[in-house]
Each structure stands twice: as structure tokens, then as C-alpha cells.
Design a binder for these strands. Structure first.
Length: 203
DNA sequence: CGCTCGATATTCT
DNA sequence: GAATATCGAGCGA
């Protein structure tokens, strides 16, 4: 038995996968101080990135040393270093007629290992521990060492498990991009209290 | 609260 | 040389 969405789940249009990932669980089995700890959180914010049809995507110009995972098997971790400061984690996903694609995981509701995640982050507030793409990689001890890992197997040190689908999901423009800013490829669970205040939907 | 700015890898122009 | 799928410190109001 595998509790994880399989490759079929990720072999769909990237935006569909990004929407479906809201409510699933990101699980990290980290080796810290000689002990294996299980850290996890519910995914509440994602963004889809495509191929040459998507001017905002790392894959828009074709493969490079950094983005290779976006062109490989689906369901793998694409971890990259951004602004010389932070890691971001994606899972590769695309329909069968596309050449590249990935879904950026942007925010989590912490579930397991909250105290450890706080320590890794240097914070004490669960609202601040994983409420952004750079924050959640630090909270879950995700670095380029995890690039390429198969996220469809519960045996992996970094994987995604099935969760409870959100009651409603909202689509918005993606954050921090300038090209294709009109495309609604960011998905959030608007009922989550763990979205950062800045990204909170105004009613 | 909101704004500016530094950090500085990777890629593109 | 410039831009970028970010974050937090420092500052002023």
C-alpha cells in the first residue's frame, strides 16, 4: 500500500495538478542529530509552471543544469536556490503531450514536528513557520540534496500523501512574477488561517 | 503598519 | 549588466 498520489496524478495539465495538491500532505523524514524525525504539513498554496507556453517558467528556454527535473519523470522534487538565499520546492507535473512543468509548493499548515520546524526556522510562531516557499523549505530541512527525489513513494525522505480536499479552492495570479501575471495559476485554500497576512484574500 | 534594501545563485540579455 | 517563482531587518509614521 502506498498512501501517495502516483505518477498518474502528476501526468495531467500542470494547473489541474496544482489545484488537486491543495489539501494533500507534504512529508519530510529528516535526519537531524543522528535521529530521523517526521515533519509534515498540509499544502494550502501552490502555483503551476509550464514550458515554452509559460513565459514565467524556469523551463521556458529549455533545459538547463538547474531545471532538468522539470523535463524528467513526473512526481519528482525540483528544488532550486533563489535570490542567493532560499530554496524552493516543486513537484514535477505535466500532461503527456507537454515537455516540462512543475508545481511550486508555497505554504503549509504545520502538522507534525512543529517544535523542530520552529527550531530550524528560528521562530516560535506556527503562523510564521511554513507560510511561504522559502520558509517551508527551511522548516522541513529541504535543500538541493533533495533535488530529483521521487515524491510518489512513502519510502522517500520527501514525499506527498493523500489528504482531505479543501471545501473550496481559489485561483489567483502568481506571486512575484512579471511575465504572464494575468494567468490565474496560483491556488489557495482561502479558509486556511495559515496563509500569510500579505497574501490573505481581501473580502 | 508599510516601505526600502541587502543577501547573492542562476540564468538571460 | 539585469532580472528573479524570497525573506527579514531597519526605518518612519
Amino acid at each position: 500500500m502506498n498512501d501517495c498520489p502516483g505518477t498518474g496524478f502528476y501526468s495531467r495539465p500542470t494547473a489541474d495538478v496544482a489545484r488537486s495538491l491543495i489539501g494533500t500532505i507534504l512529508v519530510r523524514k529528516a535526519r537531524l542529530h543522528g535521529k530521523t524525525v517526521r515533519l509534515s504539513g498540509r499544502i494550502i498554496e501552490t502555483e503551476a509552471y509550464g514550458h515554452s507556453d509559460d513565459p514565467a517558467s524556469h523551463a521556458r528556454m529549455g533545459p538547463t543544469p538547474r531545471n532538468g527535473v522539470m523535463f524528467g519523470h513526473v512526481g519528482r522534487a525540483y528544488v532550486y536556490f533563489i535570490y542567493g538565499n532560499h530554496f524552493c520546492v516543486n513537484v514535477s507535473a505535466r500532461s503527456r503531450n507537454e515537455k516540462a512543468g512543475a508545481v511550486l509548493i508555497r505554504a503549509l499548515e504545520p502538522i507534525q514536528g512543529i517544535k523542530i520546524m520552529n527550531k530550524l526556522r528560528g521562530v516560535s510562531d506556527p503562523m510564521l513557520v511554513a507560510s511561504g516557499p522559502g520558509k517551508l523549505t527551511q522548516a522541513l530541512d529541504i535543500t538541493s540534496l533533495q533535488n530529483g527525489i521521487d515524491m510518489t513513494s512513502a519510502a522517500s525522505e520527501l514525499h506527498i500523501e493523500h489528504g482531505v480536499r479543501a471545501g473550496n479552492i481559489m485561483a489567483t495570479p502568481r506571486i512575484g512574477i512579471t511575465r504572464s501575471a494575468e494567468r490565474y495559476w496560483r491556488f489557495v485554500d482561502p479558509t486556511s488561517k495559515y496563509l500569510s497576512r500579505k497574501l490573505q484574500i481581501k473580502v
